[in-house]
Design a binder for these strands. Structure first.
Lengths: 235, 235
DNA sequence: GTCTATACACAGATAGAC
DNA sequence: GTCTATCTGTGTATAGAC
């Protein structure tokens, strides 16, 4: 699987994101015509990602957002009741989509090494499609209320556990060496995150997401497959 | 070298940080008595790190800072002329110390594999001593003015190049395999960063910085030393 | 549905007493 | 050196016209 193949399978657009956000928040959105809402939510979310990328969500004023979307303050508040709610809508909707997409690729009954490749690639490719959201959710996590923050941490734990389970399965079938699977999963996640956190670096060097994915996989496989390892690797 | 040994060699305290910050910014600080300044800068910086960790520097108001330090607004402004200057002082002072400390450990004329271990450990141990600062500088980089931001990016490039140079030296002496050294350096940095960005995770699991360092080293060495690697690893 | 105008709280910053 | 009191701009949010 490469990124192009992934795209033909998954097919999530910003428009889907906005349409789903509309259905999920129907009662709080004063405007009722679907096409209008979707169009404007798209403008709003794009602007939030853009401004937040430059200066952070806290530092983004509603006047900034109004300018960037070319909508008045009054119009904006027809789509959410407060700046905090706007943040929550974006976070929740993103999590829902990521969750659903990961699930899709987990069902396949394949050997652990293939499963590991698929999970790592899926996660990277997802973060490539939804890069603005992934960056946003990482940087703005601390601005969430306790309940939402808990959801974010649960998500982090969930994706990490997926990796740990695969690594353990691999060890038990003899495909992988014995390692500290929990720490290995952390390292994998750290490498995945770097892809969307330091995007400027990789863009400048013209590294494609496929190259990056292959590199991460080679890196990880060297560790869990090679036998001559120093004391640090063992549990 | 482990963390304890490192500490006995390096000996940087928060007090040193504040004293140096005082000397560097003497002309802008209205208070002149050294002991008073150092004592209060310590209160101020500690409070900035604490509040920023919880809600970010932008979201921290000067009234928050006044409450946390138990100093009045007026007193605070005797130590810096604006909130932005406060940010710059902290960023600059931190960079100066990190730079100097890395230099110290680079001079030793040792083989590449030993050098790699030392550099990775030094950087991790440094980020352990100055964890609040490392976290702060990562999360608040986007709030810097262009000139300061450039300095931060230069620092990132500098530490990455140190790694690349060592890796290349190792390849030329036959100690390491041929890999994409630039990407390998990125992965190392990503793993180093995870240590201070996700501190809550590692604290909860009672992973010490020594354990973490050994694990990262084992992970990296498996990749650059083992011969059987998929296509992704090669340049 | 969208706009303009505005309410009102709170931000950063300073003056001047002590 | 530090405090209190206060200035002025900007923040989020809303009311009511169109």
């Amino acid at each position: 699987m490469n990124y192009e193949e992934f795209l033909t399978n998954i097919n999530i657009t910003m428009e889907d994101f906005c349409r789903e956000a509309f259905f999920e928040n129907r009662e709080n959105i004063r405007v009722k015509k679907e096409s209008t809402v979707v169009k404007n939510l798209q403008k709003i979310f794009d602007a939030v990602f853009k401004i937040s990328y430059e200066k952070g969500f806290q530092a983004m004023s509603m006047r900034d957002l109004s300018r960037e979307t070319r909508m008045s303050m009054g119009a904006l508040y027809a789509y959410f009741s407060s700046k905090e709610e706007l943040l929550e809508i974006i976070q929740r909707q993103g999590r829902a989509i990521v969750n659903r997409s990961l699930q899709l690729y987990l069902e396949a009954d394949t050997p652990p090494d293939v499963k590991l490749r698929n999970v790592i690639k899926t996660h990277l490719f997802l973060s490539e499609i939804g890069r603005p959201w992934f960056y946003f959710t990482f940087m703005e996590a601390k601005n969430l209320n306790p309940k939402e923050l808990e959801e974010v941490l649960a998500m982090e734990a969930y994706t990490e556990n997926i990796l740990v389970d695969i690594l353990e399965e691999g060890t038990s079938t003899g495909l992988f060496q014995k390692r500290d699977h929990s720490l290995t999963a952390c390292m994998i996640k750290a490498m995945q995150q770097d892809w969307y956190l330091k995007r400027w670096k990789y863009s400048k060097r013209k590294i494609s997401v496929d190259q990056y994915a292959d590199f991460v996989l080679a890196f990880v496989e060297a560790f869990i497959k090679s036998k001559e390892i120093g004391s640090g690797g063992r549990k």
